[in-house]
Design a protein around this nucleic acid. Sequence first.
DNA 1: CTGCATTACATGACACATCAACTTTCGTGG
DNA 2: CCACGAAAGTTGATGTGTCATGTAATGCAG
Lengths: 175, 175
Amino acid sequence: MTSKWLDETEERAWRAYRRMFTLLEARLGRELAAETGLSMADYTVLSNLVEVEGRRYRVTALADYVQWSQSRLSHHLTRMEERGLVRREQVRGDARGAYVVLTKRGLQAIAAATSAHLSGVRRHMVDLLTREQLETLGDIGQIVVGHLIEESEPSTPETPGEPGDIMAGPGTPRR
Amino acid sequence: MTSKWLDETEERAWRAYRRMFTLLEARLGRELAAETGLSMADYTVLSNLVEVEGRRYRVTALADYVQWSQSRLSHHLTRMEERGLVRREQVRGDARGAYVVLTKRGLQAIAAATSAHLSGVRRHMVDLLTREQLETLGDIGQIVVGHLIEESEPSTPETPGEPGDIMAGPGTPRR
DNA sequence: CTGCATTACATGACACATCAACTTTCGTGG
DNA sequence: CCACGAAAGTTGATGTGTCATGTAATGCAG
């Protein structure tokens, strides 16, 4: 059954990863929707906003970070705005730009959702793994992410001195 | 920065995982579309079909396996059928049912796409990891998948004798 | 300055996903 | 056998994502 592209170990790893991701995404998505009324997309936007100082993000920067098209984000923001979860704000010094800002309602929503969501993450993944497996998973992610970022940003070979600093998150603007 | 829900190791693992799949999905999706004209959704359907004997799948079984709604799959199949990639066929013995069958054109498409796709998987992930990391990733996937399947199928605690047999794939019909 | 490419974001049309019916067939209890 | 609930798929309306394009502001070359 070992294909001609990947050997046995590689194929097992890849298929396991993919299957895990398929099932996990579906499960967490369903639970999130059921328990909080937020979609994964909502959660993505809100959780990124809440982590950054000022609870605001430039539209394009957020789109880049979450790997959405500007257009998708713009549409989604419009809908979230109608639900009162976020609001757009002008950027001082650049009249083209816009901030997405977390509203009070959005803050409540994400605060409530986070505990539910992360408890799911625990139950369905984190708590099932050993310390060592968690470490390794962190390593793997760091390596893969480091590679993908390098490749797409040939100019900025990642923050010098902190190679592969995947934890930087939105707080440390890339590029 | 360590939240109150996950400790440092756990949070690093989770964030690394999440970031990895966000970037990886986006990258592999773009490359697949550019190089083969198939979307990830197309690839999912075709690659599952090609691996099962008879190159056919019952609609609901496939929907279950890939975690789509029947409806989504049905709509998507209609479009793929129009492109000549798959075809529907009657099920002998159950007039309600339908098989999705890979057409010659679909077979060519997936054959061509697989090498391109898996070479991407290699470049962006597999080749970056050590043997041990690959083993561990396989273990992690197996554990998490095993848990998720058990939970959602209380009746069938996975093929007896082969607990957590995540490699079974579509060839071994579940449930 | 001024012209022009670029950046930032929005928008509208179209593709795709979801949700709630709906149709047909199955299978089973009575 | 037959009535009726459950199963397998499909369909249409509506929500969400994509693609091409539009609008306005910016910055920089000359």
